[in-house]
Amino acid sequence: MPETAANETVRPLSLNQIQAQLSRCPSLPSLSSINKALQELLGAEQRYSAQISEIIRRDPSLTSRLLRLVNSVYYGLAQPVNSIEEAVFYLGIRQIRQLALVTPIIEDFQRLTRQCRFPWREFWQHCIGVALLTREVLGTVQTPMDESDYVAGLVHDVGKIVMAWSFPEHFAEIHRQAVAGERDLTDIEREVLGVDHAELGALYLERQRLPDLMVQAARYHHQPDKAERYTALVASVQVADLLLRAEGIGCSGNYLPVTREQCQSCAGWHLLFPNPKEAEQAIAQASLQRSLERLPHILEGLV
C-alpha cells in the first residue's frame, strides 16, 4: 500500500479478532531458549576465552556481529581485530553475553517483518539501544543481578513487530499517519487497529508463556506507574525509551518529538527518583549522558 494515501478499507478490530490473529503469529524460539551453552559457560567461575571462542564459532551470525562490534569506532583500535579470541578479550564477558542475547532475537524479529515497509534497521537500533540504556538507568538506583533488564528493554516494542506480521495493512496505515509527528503513536494505533503496540506485545508474550517480567515491560513501558510488578525495571525501560527518542538515536516508529525535560518529568523518572537530591539527580543525568554519547557507535557495530 502506498504510504502517501490512506487505506479506506482498514477498520479497527475487536479484541476477539485481534486474539484470533495473534494465535497464528509464529513463536520466537530465541525468546524462550537463548544460546544456553554460551550462557552456562559465561556464568561459570572459570571463563576461558578459548572455550567461549569455540562456542561463538558455531554461530556465524554471532561471529560476524562480534567482529563488527569490536572493530567499530567506539573501540578505536589501531589495528583491525580478525580473531575471535582477541575480540573476546577486548569486549569482555558482559558484552559477549549481550551479543549472545541479541543476535538470535533480532534474527527472529527480522523474519516476522519482511513484508512491511518500515525503517527496520533503525528500529533494531532503537530496541538494542533501549536494552543497553535500561541497564544504565536501572544501575543508577540498584545493582542489576542478571540480564533480565537487558532482555526487558530489548523486547519492550515487540508489539510493533507482531503488528507488522499479523496486521500489515493496519501497520502500514498507522505508520503513514505517524510520520507526520503530530500525534502520539499509541493514540493512532488504538484508533486504527483497536489496540496499541504495548497491549498487543503483552498479549503475544502471554500467549507464548514467556516470563511475567517481559510481559510487564511490554504492557507498561509507557505507563510504569500502572505496572503490577517489576516497577523499577519497567520505569527504567520508559526512561531509556524516551531518552533515545529525545536524542534521535534509532527509530521507534513514534515520531512525536520528545524533549529532555519530558524524559525527566515522566512517570518512570519519578518512580526511580521519588525524592531526588539535586546533586544525586545531576550525577545520574551526567552518567546517562555519557552512555547516550557512546550508543551510536555501539549500535553501528551491532546492527
Rank of each mutant, 00 (worst) to 15 (best):
Q285Y: 10
S291R: 08
P104F: 08
Q110E: 14
G43F: 08
A218T: 07
I18A: 07
C116K: 10
A152P: 00
S49M: 12
L302H: 01
E8A: 14
A5R: 13
T63G: 03
I105T: 11
W269K: 07
R97N: 12
L138Y: 09
L288T: 00
E3H: 14
G250P: 05
A180L: 11
I105H: 03
T231Y: 03
R190M: 12
Q177S: 08
V70T: 04
P119E: 12
G43H: 11
A235G: 02
I128P: 02
L244M: 05
P296A: 12
R47P: 05
F167A: 07
E40W: 07
V179Y: 03
N71W: 06
A267V: 11
S14N: 07
S265W: 03
I56Y: 01
S61I: 07
Q21W: 08
D187K: 09
I174T: 07
M163D: 03
Q264P: 03
E3S: 10
P296M: 09
G201K: 00
W124T: 01
L213M: 11
H222G: 09
E191C: 03
V70A: 06
Q289P: 05
E169P: 02
T231H: 13
L233P: 00
R209D: 13
D184M: 08
R65V: 12
A131S: 13
V10E: 09
E278P: 04
L132E: 03
A87H: 00
V88P: 00
F171D: 00
Q238W: 02
L295I: 09
R290E: 15
V258W: 07
R65G: 01
S33V: 05
I128K: 02
T4C: 12
S32E: 13
V239T: 03
Q208R: 04
G181Y: 04
E107G: 02
E45K: 10
Q285W: 07
F123T: 00
A6L: 13
I34Q: 08
S23Y: 06
I174R: 01
R47W: 12
L138T: 02
S33P: 04
L15Y: 09
Q46S: 15
L295C: 04
L256H: 15
S23V: 02
P80R: 11
D196M: 03
A279T: 07
L66I: 07
Y75H: 02
V102M: 15
L22Q: 05
Y48W: 11
S23M: 11
N82F: 10
W120E: 04
Q262K: 08
E3Y: 12
C25E: 10
A202H: 01
C251Q: 14
V102T: 11
W269T: 00
Q98N: 15
S236H: 06
Q142W: 00
P60G: 04
R111G: 14
L210E: 00
V70M: 01
I55G: 01
E173D: 11
S236Q: 01
L42S: 02
S148P: 06
A246T: 08
G201I: 04
N254E: 14
S291I: 10
P2K: 15
Q281L: 12
T140Y: 09
I56P: 01
R94C: 10
E107Y: 04
V195T: 06
V215Y: 00
Q51N: 14
Q79S: 13
A202F: 02
G201M: 06
